[in-house]
């Protein structure tokens, strides 16, 4: 189980994270979504015990991850955003080194995972592509078959054909009782794997979205094309969660009945109006609409 409660950390120069709380249970997976600097990696690094919380706590399997990091990491697999793998080592040497630390006795485990991830790790890490390094990090994270997986941008550089296999593999791991927390900017991947998404902005959680609700189409995105740019500007002055604004088009993502929204639209000359089930991107865009308007 991953438990974060009132977690606050401030960097010396930049903002950090404020009062972050969430819980990821076994057989659950969650994704942290947010633009760069939103605090996703800071949460993961605090969970890994690299950063000392100013307030609140981060726990892995009921163990404080800063005070008792060694114990907390006994059942955790971690993929760093920019893994430092000792670049002069060969991939296989690095994995053997990790296996030694993690007490992995099964000599076939490395070979088995390399096969699953279609990775030839005999080359020096410094010569590996981003995709190969991400796979190497994933193999390392899964090496000791941990109950908790913390993955920072697990799709970095991965070829699209491999992503489906990764989703399948991680889903299987989840069904075995693993608890997965990841930070990702890959919406399609996140939607396929995560049970819920934690949307972050400027170090705060702005929303927690149940992916199953999205799948049930309770939330929809409306795309509207106005007759004039002036009308679009007037509509933007109203208090609707607009996003994806172009010259005369915008989108609005809403949950529940759209009656009030449609009534509001009746005041404007609309060229086209369409709706579709909301995606994670739509929700994400909705929370970041201010930046879009600018």
């Amino acid at each position: 189980m991953i438990e974060v409660k009132d977690l606050t950390f401030t960097y010396q120069k930049n903002q950090g994270i404020q009062n972050i709380s969430f819980l990821v249970q076994p057989e659950e997976s969650a994704v942290l979504l947010g633009s760069e600097g939103a605090g996703k990696t800071t949460i993961l690094r605090t969970l890994m015990g690299f950063l000392k919380p100013e307030r609140g706590y981060a726990r892995l399997a009921d163990t404080d991850s800063f005070r008792f990091s060694g114990k907390a990491h006994q059942n955790v697999g971690y993929l760093a955003q920019e893994s430092a793998f000792f670049p002069q080592s060969k991939g296989t040497s690095y994995l053997r080194f990790c296996a030694a630390y993690k007490g992995v006795k099964d000599k076939n485990r490395i070979r088995e995972l390399l096969g699953k991830f279609e990775l030839d790790a005999t080359d020096r890490i410094s010569r590996m592509s981003l995709s190969e390094r991400t796979k190497l990090g994933l193999v390392d994270a899964l090496l000791a078959d941990p109950q908790i997986l913390i993955l920072d941008e697990p799709t970095s550089g991965l070829e699209p054909a491999f992503l489906n296999r990764l989703v399948r593999y991680l889903k299987e791991e989840k069904q075995k009782g693993k608890c997965i927390l990841m930070a990702s900017s890959d919406f399609a991947f996140s939607r396929q794997l995560a049970d819920f998404a934690i949307l972050m902005k400027e170090g705060n959680i702005v929303s927690q979205v149940d992916i199953a609700d999205l799948e049930k189409q309770q939330t929809r995105t409306y795309e509207i094309e106005f007759e004039t740019e002036g009308q679009l500007r007037d509509f933007c002055q109203e208090d609707w969660p607009v996003a994806n604004i172009t010259r005369r088009k915008l989108s609005v993502t809403l949950s529940g009945s759209p009656a009030r929204f449609l009534a509001a639209l009746s005041k404007y000359s609309i060229l086209t109006l369409s709706s579709k089930p909301a995606s994670l991107e739509d929700l994400f865009a909705q929370y970041f609409r201010k930046e879009t308007v600018l």
Partner: peptide, 11 residues
């Protein structure tokens, strides 16, 4: 960071 992600205490 790579090292501290292992099951090793800081001490």
């Amino acid at each position: 960071s790579t090292l501290l992600a292992m099951p090793l205490s800081r001490l």
